[in-house]
Design a protein around this nucleic acid. Sequence first.
DNA 1: ATCAATGATCGTAATATTACAATAATGCAA
DNA 2: TTGCATTATTGTAATATTACGATCATTGAT
Lengths: 109, 109
Amino acid sequence: MGASKTEIFTQEQNKLAQMMKALAHPARIAIIQELIKANACICNDLVEELGLAQATISQHLKELKTAGLIKGTVEGASICYCIDEKVWKEYKQQLASFFVAYENKNKCC
Amino acid sequence: MGASKTEIFTQEQNKLAQMMKALAHPARIAIIQELIKANACICNDLVEELGLAQATISQHLKELKTAGLIKGTVEGASICYCIDEKVWKEYKQQLASFFVAYENKNKCC
DNA sequence: ATCAATGATCGTAATATTACAATAATGCAA
DNA sequence: TTGCATTATTGTAATATTACGATCATTGAT
C-alpha cells in the first residue's frame, strides 16, 4: 500500500509519528543542524553546504515548513529560514515525554 | 529515486535520521506504547489491540527489532516482545541532545 | 526593460514503505 | 502423528519518498 491506516490510531500516535517523520531523513537533520549552527538564517547556502540539488533542498525545506519546525521570511531576493522556537520546544517536550514513559519499568525479557 | 544519498551526510546525521524513521509510523508508536503499558511482553495480542493484519504487525515488529528498540524471546509457542532498555536510553539521550542543540539561541526571523 | 540570482513548483524516474493474503515454520497438545 | 495456535516470510499491489532537470516567479541590479 504505502499509505498508513491513520484512522485506527489515536491522534497522539499519529502526531508523534508525523513529528518523527519530519526528521526521518539525514538531509533534514543536516538542514536543521545547519540552521542552528549558522544561527542567522540561511537560504541557498544550504544547497552549497549539503551536496543536493536546489530542487531537492527546496523540497526538504517545504516538509520542514509543513511540519512547522522552520519558517522562512523573504529577505531581498533570497529567503531566510530559521527554526520556529515555539514548535521546536513542542517537539522537544512531546518526544521527551514519549521517551520518559518507559522510565523505571521492570524488565521482563 | 526514493533512496537517500547517505554518503554525503555524517554518520551522526544518518543515525539520527534512522532513529526517527524507526518511530515514524503510528503503528510502531502504538506497538511501543502497548509494550510499555503491558510491561509484561506481548506478542499476538498486538494484532488484536491494533487493527492491523498479522503480517503487517510482524513487519513492524521486525523494523523495531532491526532498530534495536525491542527484542523478542521465545515463550512457548508465542514470542514475547519487550523494549530493550539499553537501546531505549540511547535513543532518548541522542534525541534529547539533538533537541538541546537549539537551546538559548537568538532568533533571527 | 533586461538580466542575473534565488527559490518554488512541475514532471518524472528510481526506490521505499505499507498492507495484506497466502504460505511456511515452529512449538505445544492430544 | 495429527492438529492447532502463533509468528515469520514471501509475493504483490497501492502509494509515498527521494532526487533532479526544467521551468516559472520574484527580487534586485544595471
